[in-house]
Design a protein around this nucleic acid. Structure first.
Length: 565
RNA sequence: CGGGGUAUAGCUCAGCCUGGUAGAGCGUUGCGUUUGGGACGCAAAAGUCGGGGGUUCGAAUCCCUCUACCCCGACCA
């Protein structure tokens, strides 16, 4: 490609609200342009990068035995009603109507469509297993799109769906996909970790997320220091304290805390550590309110709470009015001591190990001191309810946890029979009996990977692409070609030689001043640069520089070519 | 959904409080001088001041309303 004939659209200024590096750099490099909130045009430059990612993903999916297909992005309501997700998916589902007033959605994911396809196509166990994938534009009407293509509403995703007769077979394909994902992110030159994950609303059993490690990541990941255990903090188990609960030593007393409601206020006022307090949250249960207790220095993990049998599958805090009606007091003064017997008290493992603790007194302006479980406070059940924090013991018993941030770029699930069951997708087994299929699903955020890669690979001058993702591998830059025809000629020759050898090269023949040209080439992150100039020609050398190195080197003609063999 | 903010030249933004001739930088076009780290000079083009309504002799500026976008929070895969 000759840049004089390309549409390179770098800009100097970027809106003040582009906060993270990848968003700013993608705008400055002219890779994307915003059309509406969370909706972006990929420019020719941006598309080149997107295609590189796609190519690696496609090659590895094919190698792993998946079969590419393409499903519609517009999907009929009826299919989504079969699984109940027309309602359950919520506001993220973009619903549209056609001219006959028929209802459709723009697909945020394709479990329904692929399961419908499978139930029509697959009749015999002998056709299984099969793994179908596609690379396609999805739309999720995010409440708050942000960070450019990192959290866009319209985005490019690779999604794969596998079908099996048995859970064992599903498990085998799941491992194959897991390995394929690791290869994809390795080939793309990304630092990543696979972590145990929550299965969320998509449902199912086993699940791993693949995260690109970056401080700007929206997810928190817990790592063990002594093993390769890694889990999303949503899922990471908070183990019970090693030391058992001490015997009560203090008498229960009620103390006046007229205006102190938060743990910070109460602990400061009474001169006790937050870790010696019990925080009580009332949530809506299946059958009236439920009390959840965690230690004052811990936070409730709502994902864990939602899985409690006492809760309706989601954890929603009770309103102030509900709390007042049930307990006679207001948030800030709730505690497990003397709570109405109709309210189950579920206590986190760490909170359950406390003795002589401080908690709400269930009366306005009152807290209890010297409270103890069983003796003073009812304890229905102990459960893992809290978010892990750095320094917690690792769930596998090997070392302690530390917390890092990551960007979720891939997710593999074992769906089990959830969708096949709901939609009646079955095949006949050896005995001629209908058997509901087992499914797995495997997603990769193709467009998000582009942003994630930039988060991990940039400097003050711009993007530093990993080789596999770069829009071009090498840039040939000509200095002042109009002044000396021999310089222009030499650059042209080098460019052609590189192309002839199959090297993806770009010739910057725009005739810009050197400063502007170098700034552009560095901004768009080309991994290798060769400068052809009058000065170099006189010395019989080319000036070569790697994007990730500070110094350039003088190389002879054949040495330059040899770099790319 | 709640709270806050923004909308002015192709882009990034001033001007609005305190009503009175539409501004800057970057970019673009032309001419000239330049050519190893985002050059310089001269000239020029370019705006229904987001839409609608109101107040006023007069509205980018004040008021109402609609729309879009952004931020914080809640919510949600």
């Amino acid at each position: 490609m000759r840049l004089s004939q390309f549409h390179l659209a770098t800009v100097k200024e970027v809106p003040a609200d582009a906060e993270i590096a990848s968003h700013r750099l993608m705008l400055r490099a002219g890779m994307i342009r915003k059309l509406a909130a969370g909706i972006y045009t990929w420019t020719p430059l941006g598309l080149r990068v997107l295609r590189r990612v796609e190519r690696v993903v496609r090659e590895e999916m094919d190698r792993a035995g998946a079969i590419e297909m393409l499903m519609p992005s517009i999907q009929p309501k009826e299919l989504w009603e079969e699984t109940g997700r027309w309602q359950k998916f919520g506001g993220q589902l973009l619903k549209i109507r056609d001219r006959k007033d028929g209802e459709f959605c723009y697909g945020p994911t394709h479990e329904e469509v692929v399961t419908d396809f499978a139930r029509n196509e697959l009749k015999s166990y002998r056709q299984l297993p099969l793994n179908f994938y596609q690379i396609q534009t999805k739309f999720r009407d995010e409440i708050r799109p942000r960070f450019g293509v990192m959290r866009a509403r319209e985005f490019l995703m690779k999604d794969a769906y596998s079908f099996h007769l048995t859970p064992e077979c599903l498990d085998r394909t799941y491992r194959v996909m897991y390995d394929a994902y690791a290869r994809i992110f390795t080939r793309l030159g990304l630092q990543f970790r696979a972590v145990q994950a929550d299965t969320g609303a998509i449902g199912g059993s086993a699940s791993h997320e693949f995260h690109v490690l970056a401080d700007s990541g929206e997810d928190a990941i817990a790592f063990a220091s002594g093993s390769d255990y890694a889990a999303n903090v949503e899922l990471a188990e908070a183990v019970a304290p090693a030391t058992p609960r001490p015997a009560p030593a203090a008498p229960l007393e009620r103390v006046a805390t007229p205006t102190q409601r938060t743990i910070e206020e109460v602990s400061a006022f009474l001169g006790v550590a937050p870790a010696q307090c019990v925080k009580t949250l009332l949530v809506r249960g299946r059958d009236g309110l439920v009390a959840l207790c965690v230690r004052g220095d811990h936070e409730l993990n709502e994902i864990k709470a939602a899985k409690l049998p006492e809760l309706p599958g989601e954890s929603e805090l009770a309103s102030e009015a509900e709390i007042l009606a049930a307990t006679g007091t207001r948030p800030g003064f709730i505690g497990p001591v003397g709570l109405p017997a109709t309210i189950p008290v579920i206590v986190d493992r760490s909170a359950a190990a406390l003795a002589d603790f401080v908690c709400g007194g269930n009366a306005d302006g009152t807290h209890c001191r010297g409270a103890n479980w069983e003796r003073d406070a009812r304890l229905t059940r102990v459960a893992d309810l809290r978010k892990v924090v750095a320094g917690d013991p690792a769930p596998d018993g090997r070392g302690t946890l530390s917390i890092a941030r990551g960007i979720e770029v891939g997710h593999v699930f074992q769906l089990g029979q959830k969708y096949a069951e709901a939609m009646g997708a079955s095949v006949l087994d050896e005995q001629g009996k209908a058997r509901t299929m087992y499914m797995g699903c495997y997603g990769i955020g193709v467009s998000r990977i582009v942003a994630a890669a930039i988060e991990q690979n940039h400097d003050d001058a711009g993007i530093v692409w990993p080789e596999a993702m770069a829009p071009w591998r090498v840039a040939v830059c000509v200095i002042n070609p109009k002044h000396d025809a021999k310089v222009a000629e030499a650059a042209e020759t080098l460019y052609r030689e590189l192309c002839a050898r199959g090297v993806d090269a770009v010739l910057d023949d725009r005739g810009l001043r050197p400063g502007a040209m170098f700034a552009d080439i560095e901004l768009i992150g080309i991994p290798h640069r060769v400068v052809v100039s009058e000065r170099g020609l006189a010395a019989g050398a080319w000036e070569y520089r790697r994007r990730d190195e500070a110094e350039s080197r003088a190389l002879g003609h054949s040495e330059v070519l040899a770099l790319f063999d």
